[in-house]
Write a protein that binds this DNA or RNA. Structure first.
Length: 581
RNA sequence: GCCGAUGUAGCUCAGUUGGUAGAGCGGCUCAUUCGUAAUGAGUAGGUCGGAGGUUCAAGUCCUCUCAUCGGCUCCA
């Protein structure tokens, strides 16, 4: 199925929905109703507050209209006729759209199905009866034209497909996404919590989640040392004058928390790590021989996020960035970008993400700092690095920050959803503001290039993505508990303890369940908690000095020797294997 | 921040037209010593998100407030 065909179907379904709404709620003013990635929506302005039950009503009405087999009829009108038409019909939003069309457009097209006539350039299906498999999904508020100063309209989201199978499949994926929700799994696996008593967007990491995080961070550090980075630690607060120098108080103010007073000085909790890294740089003079400097930090920052945007671990107010800053000379810049990109992709792959989309954001039209040729050089370096890696990318023209162009990498998870994680950004602003220099081979002062980069983005978000990607069943190397020993009767307690000690000694994270429950119960418990391996220990095993291994995908493994099992697990850890067989 | 929905035990939820809180799971205790997704019995958990108000009486009605969820805007 081509996307274009789906788009036509969905857009036509949006019209169908609008015509149903018009029939049910005649005084409705219509916004727009486009097809979107997985479906469509339509925005309405009406007296009535729509409720979830109304969706069923509207769906039924749509079904009726579809069965009437109306024709989607195209009508042309001149611009003025169109304005007159919609003014008469009391459709101010439509009038606004037409008035905002470029002046060279004098003819506009309409589509009619039955009594419903909508401004639309098409294309559409031929008849309403072609729309068979659709579903209205949810209700939401949305600002007219996406601007929060405009009135808020009521939006209905829905989707449509050409076959029943495709629709069912899509609804199944939605269900699947719900069952993977990291907030639910986070509670079920006791990984983390967010509580009202502390405040929204401030995360408590429980032992299980913290264990996984710890493994992740240790790996992250090792890899950074291996890749030529040094690691820094910097404070959580700093004088407000620092943020004046950096300019954040100007351009980032609305995301920063109010200052606190210490000894008559204002201090601000950090929303970024960069100024601190720059001050480490400025603590001494640098020669061109020192460069490049690559400094990384798991830097915890606090940013004010509006209350309505907080979401589990994905959008929080306190989070840890896997931040790094690279300071280099102009001639090193291109190599550094290539290096970062390679490092980044390797890191993502180690966590099991090998599908991604890459975006390059270039210089904004108007507001930007730095010289034009610097921008061009940097943009070229970014694109070249991606091309050298033989990867595709999309250009977001003018989408860069005012201080420099960037690469953003969005990873695709098991459900093909895209998540923004990695970012590689040039900064032409801070080196200038902090007057950073190095002494070149010519004995003169030069300004270093500065590159910000985060590979995982924020540890919180990345962890949330991992939870959803793996549905809580982390790969063995990351899993907080790798092996659980299940005894059958208490006669095996001693033997179980010996096994536990050997596992622990080998560096395997294990526990014993010797409770007075039946084996079936213990298996179920371990299964629900997605523990990769269960060692079942009964009289038989004890007598023969063996073990019986079951993994979390309900398979018994042919590994009766503990030593061999330990090697097997360590091998999985070593290779970051994604399987448990 | 805005629009809408929700908020009852650790979790999932029930609570009829206002009459003073209930289940399952989980926890704890006891019994059971048992071979690959739930052994049985008993028991303890709640100022029904918070603050006002209406009423003889509020989990149920009204007002305000906070938080969460779905979106919008914004973003790591």
């Amino acid at each position: 199925m081509k996307n274009l065909e789906l788009e036509i179907l969905r857009h036509s379904t949006a019209h169908l929905m609008a015509s149903a709404v018009q029939k049910l709620f005649p005084n409705t003013k219509f916004g727009i109703g486009p097809a979107i990635e997985d479906g469509f929506y339509y925005d309405f302005d009406m007296e009535k507050r729509l409720e979830p039950e109304d969706l069923e009503l509207i769906e039924k009405e749509m079904q009726k209209i579809a069965e009437e087999d109306l024709v989607f009829e195209k009508i042309e009108k001149t611009r003025n006729e169109a304005i007159e038409f919609f003014t008469k019909k009391n459709q101010p939003y439509k009038v606004e759209i037409i008035k905002d069309l470029p002046s060279e457009i004098q003819e506009v097209s309409f589509f009619r199905n039955g009594d419903f006539v909508d401004l639309c350039k098409g294309p559409h299906l031929e008849r309403t009866s072609e729309i068979k498999y659709f579903k209205l999904l949810n209700l939401a508020g949305a600002y007219w034209r996406g601007n929060e100063k405009n009135p808020m309209l009521q939006r209905i989201y829905g989707t449509a497909f050409y076959t029943k199978e495709a629709l069912d499949e899509y609804l199944k994926v939605l269900d699947e996404a719900r069952s993977r929700d990291h907030r639910t799994l986070g509670r079920e696996l006791d990984l983390f919590s967010v509580t009202d008593e502390i405040g929204g967007g401030l995360v408590l990491w429980h032992p299980n989640g913290a264990r996984v995080r710890n493994v992740l961070e240790n790996f992250w550090r090792d890899e950074h040392f291996r890749n030529g980075y040094e690691i820094l630690y910097t404070p959580h607060i700093g004088k407000s004058t620092l943020w004046e120098t950096s300019g954040h108080l100007g351009f980032y103010n609305e995301n920063m928390y109010s200052p606190m007073q210490v000894d008559d000085q204002d201090y601000i909790i950090k929303p970024m790590n960069c100024p601190f890294h720059i001050l480490v740089y400025k603590n001494s003079h640098h020669s061109y021989r020192d460069l490049p400097l690559r400094w990384a930090e798991l830097g915890t920052v606090y940013r004010y996020e509006r209350s309505g945007v907080l979401h589990g671990l994905m959008r929080v107010r306190g989070f840890t960035q896997d931040d790094a800053h690279i300071f280099c000379a102009q001639e090193q810049m291109e190599d550094e970008i290539i290096r970062v990109l390679k490092f980044c992709l390797k890191m993502l792959k180690d966590f099991g993400f090998s599908e991604y989309k890459i975006y390059v954001s270039t210089r904004p039209e108007k507001k930007f700092v730095g010289k034009l040729e610097e921008w061009e050089r940097a943009e070229k370096a970014l694109m070249r690095a991606i091309e050298l890696a033989n990867l595709e990318y999309e250009i977001d023209e003018g989408g860069g920050a005012f201080y420099g162009p960037k690469i953003d990498i969005k990873i695709k998870d098991a459900l093909k959803r895209e998540w923004q994680c990695s970012t590689i950004q040039f900064d032409f602003n801070l080196p200038e503001r902090f007057d950073m220099t190095y002494i070149g081979a010519d004995g003169g002062k030069h300004r270093p290039y500065m590159i910000h980069r985060a590979l995982l983005g924020s540890i919180e978000r990345f962890f949330g993505i991992l939870v959803e990607h793996y549905k809580g069943a982390f790969p063995v190397w990351l899993m907080h508990e790798q092996v659980r020993i299940l005894t059958i009767t208490e006669k095996q307690n001693e033997y179980a303890k010996n096994i536990f000690e050997r596992l622990t000694e080998a560096g395997i994270r294990a526990s014993i369940n010797s409770s007075n429950e039946k084996l079936g119960y213990k298996v179920r418990e371990a299964q629900v908690q997605k523990i990769p391996f269960m060692l079942i220990i009964g009289e038989k095993e004890q007598e023969n000095n063996t073990i019986s291994v079951r993994n979390r995908i309900n398979k018994t493994l042919e590994l009766s020797d503990l030593g061999k099992f330990i090697d097997f697990v360590l091998d999985k850890v070593q290779n970051k294997s994604l399987t448990v067989e």
